[in-house]
């Protein structure tokens, strides 16, 4: 088996669980995994972040989103699965992509990430604009009009929701999504973001 990121041959350690559970097809070598750095303390209020946006993470995100190498979503499959299993009976709500942009990229990276981990999710939001946050200045971001609308899927208003996104920089995207859901009457909303741009 080869490492997804560096293509070096990885010897899988045989374990009893490995023997009895379904065999994992995609692996990442230990030295590649060690380059990702975990968040030591949460830098955003009300947002749970997992990894720091360092060189390795930038590289990985670039390969996933712009080189469109969808399979490297599997690098964090175990991690995401473990994280999402903390939220019992919660509905996972990924931040959506605009349909036109999704067609251009041929996949939505958040959906692919969650699918790789085998996590079920429900889209409750729809993206209304095609412009990306990363191309705007800080002021533009914070003053931008609504980015999302609620779609037609109806849930009980006391459902525990977990908003998930790939990266948080100023937090505008998350704030907008949070507001839209809150205005619709949802009371119990948590936020889980994979990468924190603040150290």
């Amino acid at each position: 088996m080869r490492c997804l990121l560096c293509d070096r041959v990885v010897e899988k350690i045989e374990t009893w669980t490995g023997l009895f559970s379904r065999r994992q097809k995609w692996t990442t070598c230990a030295s590649c995994m060690a380059k990702f750095e975990r968040v030591s303390e949460q830098a955003y209020e009300g947002i749970r972040t997992i990894y720091v946006y360092n060189e390795a993470m930038r590289d990985w995100l670039h390969r996933l989103k712009f080189s469109q190498d969808a399979i490297i979503a599997h690098v964090f499959a175990d991690e995401i699965k473990k994280l999402c299993s903390h939220y019992k009976k919660a509905v996972i709500v990924p931040i959506p992509m605009h349909p036109a942009k999704k067609r251009a990229r041929t996949f939505a990276h958040m959906d692919v990430l969650l699918e790789a981990a085998g996590v079920r999710y429900t889209h409750l939001l729809e993206k209304t604009t095609t412009d990306t946050q990363s191309q705007k200045s800080r002021v533009e971001r914070e003053n931008s009009a609504t980015l999302f609308t609620r779609n037609a899927i109806q849930l009980r208003k006391d459902t525990h929701l977990v908003l998930v996104d790939d990266i948080v920089t100023t937090g505008t995207t998350i704030r907008h999504a949070h507001e839209v859901l809150k205005r619709d009457g949802f009371t119990h909303i948590e936020v889980l973001v994979f990468i924190s741009a603040r150290k």
Binding site: A70, I71, A104, R105, T106, F107, A108, V112
Partner: peptide
């Protein structure tokens, strides 16, 4: 065979 990845294409 391993270099070819099947994925669900939105296009």
């Amino acid at each position: 065979f391993d270099t070819y990845i099947r994925y669900y294409c939105a296009k």
